[in-house]
Computed example of a mutant assay.
Amino acid sequence: MACANPVRPPAKVQLEGEPPWHCALIADEDASAADMRAALHAATAYGLEPVPDDEHEAELLDDGRVRIWLRPTDADLDPFDNTIPDTYTLGAA
């Protein structure tokens, strides 16, 4: 599937999931701060933001990567509405 948004995260950080409610950034253990900034910028372009730590902390995966869960920036988006705006089309990298 082609990505509807031209902004892509750097190679060391993947934007994965089923938008808009089951998305995460998966960062390689050697991802730099600049990689993370670029990935967060890409997530924002898709209408996503990190879930605050007090709601769900980042997870260290068995392979050394880190998962940071994302949520829609639109607080009015209904998680039970089956229609997904084009903003949330991630596509394959």
Rank of each mutant, 00 (worst) to 15 (best):
M1S: 14
M1I: 14
M1V: 15
M1N: 12
C3W: 08
C3Y: 05
C3H: 14
A4T: 06
N5A: 03
N5M: 01
N5S: 07
P6L: 00
P6Q: 01
P6C: 00
P6Y: 00
R8C: 04
P9I: 02
P9S: 03
P10R: 10
A11M: 12
K12N: 14
V13L: 01
V13G: 02
Q14P: 06
L15S: 03
L15A: 02
E16I: 15
E16Y: 00
G17L: 10
G17P: 07
P20I: 13
W21G: 04
H22L: 12
H22M: 09
C23A: 03
A24N: 05
A24F: 11
A24P: 03
A24E: 10
L25S: 01
A27I: 01
A27V: 00
E29Q: 12
E29P: 10
D30S: 06
D30A: 04
D30V: 05
S32V: 07
S32G: 06
A34C: 07
D35Y: 08
R37I: 11
R37Q: 13
R37K: 10
A38T: 02
A39H: 05
A39C: 07
L40P: 00
L40C: 00
H41K: 08
H41I: 04
A42T: 09
A43S: 11
T44H: 13
T44D: 14
A45S: 03
A45R: 02
A45H: 00
Y46C: 05
Y46T: 00
G47W: 07
L48Q: 07
L48E: 08
E49M: 12
V51L: 06
P52S: 11
P52I: 10
D53P: 09
D53E: 09
E55N: 08
H56S: 06
H56R: 13
H56Y: 05
H56K: 12
E57P: 05
E57G: 08
A58L: 02
A58Q: 09
E59A: 07
E59Y: 03
E59W: 02
L60P: 08
D62A: 11
D62T: 03
D62R: 10
D63Y: 05
R65K: 07
V66F: 07
R67N: 06
R67T: 02
I68Y: 11
W69R: 15
W69D: 13
P72V: 07
P72L: 06
T73D: 08
T73W: 01
D74F: 14
D76E: 15
D76W: 02
L77D: 13
L77Y: 08
D78N: 14
D78Y: 04
D78K: 08
D81S: 06
D81P: 05
N82D: 12
N82V: 11
N82W: 10
T83H: 03
I84V: 15
P85I: 02
D86Y: 06
D86S: 09
T87Y: 13
T87K: 15
T87G: 02
T89A: 10
T89Y: 09
L90Q: 13
G91K: 05
G91P: 13
G91C: 13
G91Y: 05
A92Y: 11
A92K: 09
A92W: 09
A92S: 11
A93C: 14
A93F: 12
